[in-house]
């Protein structure tokens, strides 16, 4: 009896071990998209991908990490398509041969959010460079991603334009969380710091506290997304045909309309701006 109980338990565990390949991942045709937290966490991809899968039978598996890590993973061949927002880094990725070609997909915009008390007095501004200069001058706390993501890179460009040396302020009023957008917002809200965030993540963010959008509407805050097929000549495992099918759909009329139709709280978050001419060039 004793022995039987123990053997039964062992077998049950072994059985579960054998089952691990069944279940959830039933689809046999899929691609892996290396993307960013802003597209995945906002719900955009969850909203538009089923449309693509229904049409083509291709499941899209999204790995949502920072742009820096997404590009690194794609360089390793761990993904078929790259969908990120850091144009210079994307162009470098293609120039080095890791990607086939880059296409514009859409843009959203960044906003600077801050506490209702607005310690730097920048609320309502639409000049982001001036506002950041003010934040730095007043030494008001600012929480940065600090993780080499697309948002982090955009933020650093803005500090440069404002002539602020954030390295010198690091650990003082300038605080690098080294984390994703959500974690940085959580930290920022916790310490009363201004945060540069993409609008999509902000709108769907659930822990806003008394935070409000302080700075928005500056063209410098536009955030362009690009999509790239990972180069199958570098990584033969890349599912080039299915990956390209996804890119074609995303920058074609159906994908662009789906992006336009995605709303949270009645707000459109992403603005499709693919250039169909480029698409023709690619095929």
């Amino acid at each position: 009896m004793l022995r039987r109980t123990f053997l039964g338990l062992t077998l049950a565990i072994a059985g579960l071990a054998g089952l691990h390949t069944g279940g959830a991942e039933a689809a046999d045709r899929f691609i892996v998209v290396q993307s960013t937290t802003s597209t995945a966490n906002s719900g955009l991809l969850d909203a538009i991908l089923p449309e693509f899968t229904a049409k083509t039978g291709i499941e899209v598996r999204v790995v949502a990490v920072g742009t820096g890590q997404a590009i690194k993973n794609a360089t390793n061949g761990d993904g078929d398509v790259l969908l990120v927002h850091a144009k210079p880094a994307e162009e470098k990725f293609v120039a080095e041969g890791w990607g086939v070609q880059r296409f514009d997909v859409m843009y959203n915009d960044f906003v600077v959010v801050g506490p209702a008390g607005d310690p730097a007095g920048v609320a309502g501004s639409n000049d982001v460079v001036a506002s950041m200069k003010t934040i730095a001058e007043k030494g008001a706390p600012f929480a940065s991603r600090g993780d080499d993501s697309g948002t982090h890179k955009a933020e650093l460009r803005l500090w440069k334009a404002a002539g602020v040396d954030v390295k010198a302020a690091s650990g003082n009023w300038y605080r690098e969380t080294g984390s994703g957008m959500g974690a940085t917002l959580n930290a920022g809200v916790g310490m009363g710091a201004y945060v540069l965030t993409d609008r999509a993540t902000w709108i769907s963010f659930g822990n806003k506290g008394d935070y409000k959008v302080a700075v928005e509407g500056d063209p410098k805050l536009f955030n362009q997304y690009g999509v790239i097929l990972v180069n199958p000549e570098k990584h033969p495992n890349v599912k080039a045909a299915d990956g390209q099918a996804f890119i074609d759909w995303l920058i074609g009329a159906e994908g662009q309309n789906a992006i336009r139709g995605f709303m949270i709280d009645g707000q459109q978050l992403f603005f499709p701006n693919a250039n169909p001419g480029e698409m023709k060039k690619a095929s």
Partner: peptide, 11 residues
Amino acid sequence: ALETSKGNLAL
């Protein structure tokens, strides 16, 4: 981890 990063702390 995901829900935390979305700020859905209660969930």
